[in-house]
Design a binder for these strands. Structure first.
Lengths: 312, 312
DNA sequence: AAGAGAGGCTAAGTCATATTTATGGTCCGC
DNA sequence: GCGGACCATAAATATGACTTAGCCTCTCTT
């Protein structure tokens, strides 16, 4: 015998283990989803490699030798342990969903709704990371992400949620002061809050070419939702998504400063690696999120319908 | 993920385990005698099958994830246990050599010499079974056998030891009474012991066609060595092998009753399954036995040389 | 008893799968 | 700054397992 310090071929050990446990090549073949001939082949393979007699063949049945029984016992335990470790890892992995998304989306829209997901799927704990920069998926840090864009990320499966829209929003008290907003040449009593490029897009949608001069802008904060918070506090007119801040609008803390809704063709997408199409927890979150987004979209049908979509 | 209750492909687990233990695909490839590309393929395979991230890839190195580390630990233990069980079984198997042979050969020739083998190979315990009928090899009961015949057993490797010879043997006190043995028609004072067919062969070698009449024979015992024992006790003239009973002849307890040596072309052979060519213990016994048989043959050169060989 | 069925073996051809080979990119160390 | 080490990817290859088919032996049934 080869007196090898190497392990014999694992598929052969597997076939042998099943045959030993079930005391039959035919039943082992059934369990392994193969044929008796294959099991016979593997067992013989193993016997040749090890130089051990594992089974005594009788015309109608096979019987383990002493050596075979000893090895089979160990092998069964080893495979069971291996299997258990995978199951455990999968269970643990299945119980925790790690997401990364944009700060505004996460803060303003997703977080308030996460409780509903948790209520429906109490066995999945969500871990949410917020960052303005899209984080790589597939390296083990995150299971999935919500991004905005066109949905064309390579290697990722994308599910569209709702469009990215822009509209001037302000506190009700400032609504009057926002009159004449549509004329960028005209000075306003209140500053414009939010990213100048979004304002530029909105004015282009309005048909006004150059947009407002730089001195119209107040401090631009780190994220959209902070501008919106400033607007709610009455510090100016913010440019932001009427969908993301529907709750604020519905509560009357925020009103449109103008009726025009602009968009740049982009949307929010739920994305996850193609390699994880089979992941149950991702599928569950995706389904819940799609549903929530569809509900959101049904509230925003008129907004989305009348939005002026421009190239960015 | 496939949430499979089946174990993922074992070769992939093996590749992963090595990679995890060595913290490097390249070193794992080296250990497994394959290439890094292969290891990479398998690890990816495993990750896809299980839906788990096992490694975080960095451009220059790979790092285990928490799940990967947990699985690797279990996998290493499982493989080690598996390996240990094979090594143990092989060691145990290697420490015990089970032989089957003919009663006379075993009793008269082999057993007295087994001590020499044991002295040279104290780590191998011999188990000797005696039976007149040849026992099947390769079913786990016996590692090897010593048989007599022509050396043409299918599926078995045969090593020739020494020829099967026949010669009348008797106690020295009966030597005189054996005079005239060569004439089967002449009545003797002492009976003939042993198998009539062997006597028949011997007489044919002598050139005497019909052989002695049945009433010349004493009781024929179950095995040759028992006839010889009877001869030593002075109960008659036995037909037997001068090689197997060389010790008795050398000690003077047995003398040839006639000088003619006959043979039927057969010999004693050491045989073992072709499938076990690699077995170290069988090789060690075979080498020792060949040596002992060669020494025996050198003592019996003149006997073998002058033997008259007939077809049986 | 005799026949059908179950279990296993063997042999040969097919097919799948792992592996190799080659290429490219990234980072680390000299 | 450059060469080497390490890993990823893709396509082609080759090994090896698997299936299929036919056969034998034994057992159970009728």
């Amino acid at each position: 015998m080869v007196r090898s310090d190497k392990l014999p071929p694992l598929p052969s050990i597997r076939a042998f283990e099943a045959a030993a446990r079930l005391e039959s090549f035919a039943r082992a073949a059934q369990e392994l989803g193969t044929t008796a001939a294959s099991v016979s082949y593997h067992v013989r393979q193993l016997e040749q490699q090890t130089g051990l007699h594992l089974f005594v063949r009788h015309p109608h049945k096979v019987v383990l030798t002493a050596a075979g029984a000893a090895i089979a016992r160990e092998a069964t335990a080893a495979f069971a342990a291996l299997h258990a470790s995978f199951v455990k890892a999968q269970d643990r992995d299945e119980a925790r969903l790690s997401l990364t998304t944009l700060p505004t989306f996460g803060t303003s829209w997703l977080t308030p709704r996460l409780g509903l997901f948790r209520a429906r799927h109490p066995d999945i704990a969500i871990e949410l990371e917020l960052s303005a920069e899209p984080q790589a998926l597939g390296d083990g840090r995150f299971d999935a992400a919500i991004r905005h864009g066109l949905g064309d990320w390579r290697g990722l499966r994308s599910v569209r949620l709702f469009p990215v829209l822009f509209m001037p929003l302000c506190a009700p008290a400032l609504k009057a002061a926002a009159a004449g907003l549509e004329d960028p040449g005209k000075a306003l009593d209140v500053p414009l809050l939010g990213r100048p490029d979004w304002w530029g897009l909105w004015y282009r949608a309005l048909g006004v070419a150059p947009g407002p001069p730089p001195d119209r802008f107040g401090t631009s904060l780190a994220a959209e939702h902070m501008d919106i918070a400033a607007a709610i506090a009455g510090h100016g007119i913010a440019i932001g998504s009427p969908i993301l801040f529907r709750d604020e609008i519905a509560a009357g803390r925020l009103v449109p400063a103008h009726d025009l809704v602009a968009g740049d063709g982009r949307a929010f997408w739920f994305v996850y690696p193609v390699a994880r199409l089979q992941s149950a927890k991702i599928a569950r979150f995706r389904d819940w999120l799609s549903e929530a987004a569809a509900a959101e979209l049904s509230h925003a049908r008129d907004l989305a319908g009348r939005a002026v979509i421009l190239d960015p």
